[in-house]
């Protein structure tokens, strides 16, 4: 693995809810190397978005707060950094693309104005240079005839074009880390394929690190180098993409892989992990997956299971790793 550019260690995030302070992200650690794509996967509500927003220090406070841990970008601590300093980093060194492109783009300004503003803020360059840069990045994301499109408003673009424009804006300052929270989930598969191709080629050219949040294992298989699997606010397994799909070590990962409809198995009953994920205010004791785990034993319910390092840069949070042989993807 390349030298880590982004390191998250023991991150905890809490929200004030009807049930008091609830910890929705608990002890999350991972790192992303230069030029590497880390996939963050897990079911809805597992804390993927909260984790990625924490990296940008964009958790809404209140109701949220970062209750502990450390987030380092190129060795600099982001937790507790002053807002002006963060603003210098956001959009410049670390950029983000959201699921709904409308969240990243302001409907009241043209695409050109928005990209130019980011460039001028961080680069302090002239209007003309900013415009040239905007044309350049729009070209990068394959918006046809970019110069004339600078004056277009977001709503004049199709969903796929908007998402590409949002990516262009994120790329405008050559970020070292790109955080993409489900950037293709709202898109059609054919458009998703375009965007994934684009991200891949951009990464090859510029060598940025990507934290790619998704719940689609197909997309992970397509794009990611390493994968972190989240369940109920915790990372339960990290591994390289090939290891993870071939020989998952955590029962939850196995469940997810088995649940993907397999090609050529018409009419067979689909595998499903029974039950639903727990609510963050009523986390099960011990292993948080035990109520749904087919391999659970009484001991699994008793005490917290630590994330253990295995050979080959893998980490697994299951007390039965050694005994279990789990099935990977076909």
């Amino acid at each position: 693995m390349a030298a880590p550019i982004l390191e998250v260690e023991d991150l905890g995030v809490e929200f004030l809810t009807d049930h008091g302070w609830v910890r929705v992200v608990d002890g999350v650690s991972f790192s992303v190397g230069e030029g590497e794509t880390l996939g963050l996967v897990g079911e809805s509500g597992s804390g993927k978005t909260v984790t990625s927003l924490s990296v940008m220090q964009l958790i809404p406070v209140p109701p949220g707060r970062i209750s502990g841990g450390s987030i380092r970008f190129a060795g600099r601590e982001l937790v507790g950094m002053s807002e002006p300093q963060l603003e210098d980093i956001r959009g410049d060194d670390i950029a983000m693309v959201f699921q709904e492109s409308m969240t990243s783009l302001n409907p009241a300004f043209t695409i050109g104005e928005q990209i130019c503003e980011v460039v001028r803020r961080h680069r302090g360059c002239s209007r003309r240079e900013a415009r040239d840069r905007a044309v350049e990045v729009l070209e990068l994301v394959q918006i046809p005839d970019p110069r004339s499109r600078l004056g277009a408003f977001p709503h004049e673009f199709s969903g796929g074009m908007r998402q590409r424009a949002a990516i262009a804006m994120a790329l405008a300052c050559d970020p070292k880390v790109l955080i993409a929270d489900e950037p293709t989930t709202a898109l059609d598969v054919t458009v998703q394929a375009q965007v994934l191709d684009l991200l891949r080629s951009l990464q090859q050219r510029f060598g940025m690190a990507i934290l790619f949040v998704t719940h689609n294992l197909g997309v992970v298989a397509d794009l990611c180098d390493r994968v972190a699997v989240m369940y109920a606010g915790r990372i339960v397994e990290t591994a390289t993409v090939f290891d993870l799909f071939e020989s998952p070590q955590h029962p939850y990962t196995e469940g997810l892989l088995q649940a993907m409809p397999q090609l050529g198995e018409r009419g067979k009953r689909l595998a499903a992990i029974p039950g639903t994920p727990p609510m963050p205010w009523q986390m099960p004791t011990g292993c948080r997956f035990h109520p749904r785990c087919p391999y659970a034993e009484t001991a699994c319910t008793e005490q917290d299971i630590p994330l253990r390092a295995l050979a080959g840069d893998r980490h697994v949070r299951c007390r039965r790793v050694e005994e279990l042989t789990l099935e990977g993807a076909q």
Binding site: M161, V189, V191, A193, V219, A221, V241
Partner: peptide
Amino acid sequence: LLSAVPIPNPRIQRSRQRIVLPGDV
């Protein structure tokens, strides 16, 4: 459409012939 659906298996997915359609609907 069929070729654009990513297959949840990195070995198969990365060695597939993919058709990426240009443009938008």
